[in-house]
Simulated scan of single mutants.
Amino acid sequence: MSKVFSAHAVSVNGYISGRTPDGAEEFGRGLGDAPMLFDWYFDGDTPSRLFDGFNLDEPSARFFDAIAARVGAAVAGRTTYEHSSHWGGGSPHPTAPLFVVSDRPVPEISERQTLVTTGVGDAIAAAREVAGDKDVALMGGGLVTEALRMGLVDELILHQVPILLSGGHSFFQELPEHVQLRLLEVIPASGVTHLHYEVVR
């Protein structure tokens, strides 16, 4: 059976964006001259087999491509969709179709993207149907938190960058109860540590 998972780059204290010197929030960037949370995508000498333009170090490339190869469909929340410039009308994954969850109209949505207005559960169900025997990748902290509340997430992958950000946007939102995780693997790499967890039910 296919799995539902989320993979995201985070600071050690769990932020996915920091604040710029003028107080604005910038997705993936730390404060001032702090490094980008996504620098490790481009700082290596091993090209990704799946993502054009991604050059990672060898451990990251091996892990990243293995995870990306599992994806048959992606689900993103509205905020992540907006912050990612609508992925140019495509998807965050080169081959997987994208489902966007929003309770209000999305005039920018393209024919290659599917809007779901009835909630995270329905979006994941639709994505699983399209994904077939492949997995569904979730994008967006609010969406992932809601899916965790509903018991729909099987795995979490945190690409942890060695920095403590002084503020910004936290990946996880408040949960009504604890969620226990089981560590499956740890992949140390240049500029990032990949932490692969299973959600314990």
Rank of each mutant, 00 (worst) to 15 (best):
E185V: 09
A9I: 04
E111N: 09
H196M: 02
H196C: 01
D57I: 04
A9T: 02
H93L: 02
E177R: 07
A127Q: 00
D133R: 14
M1C: 12
G89L: 05
R182T: 12
M36I: 03
D135C: 12
G72Q: 06
M36R: 09
T193L: 08
S166W: 03
V144H: 01
H8T: 03
D22T: 14
D33M: 14
G53D: 14
A137V: 12
R78L: 10
G32L: 09
G89T: 05
P59E: 00
A68M: 06
P97H: 02
H86R: 10
Y81F: 11
N55P: 02
I124V: 09
R70E: 04
F54C: 01
L37W: 08
M1K: 07
L56M: 14
T114I: 11
S84L: 10
Q180H: 13
G44C: 04
G132V: 12
F27H: 04
W87S: 14
R182G: 15
S91V: 11
E185T: 12
G167L: 12
V4S: 00
D133T: 14
V120M: 05
R70G: 04
H178K: 15
R128A: 13
H159G: 07
R19Q: 15
L115C: 03
D103K: 12
E111T: 05
L31H: 13
I67K: 03
Y15N: 00
M36C: 08
S85Q: 14
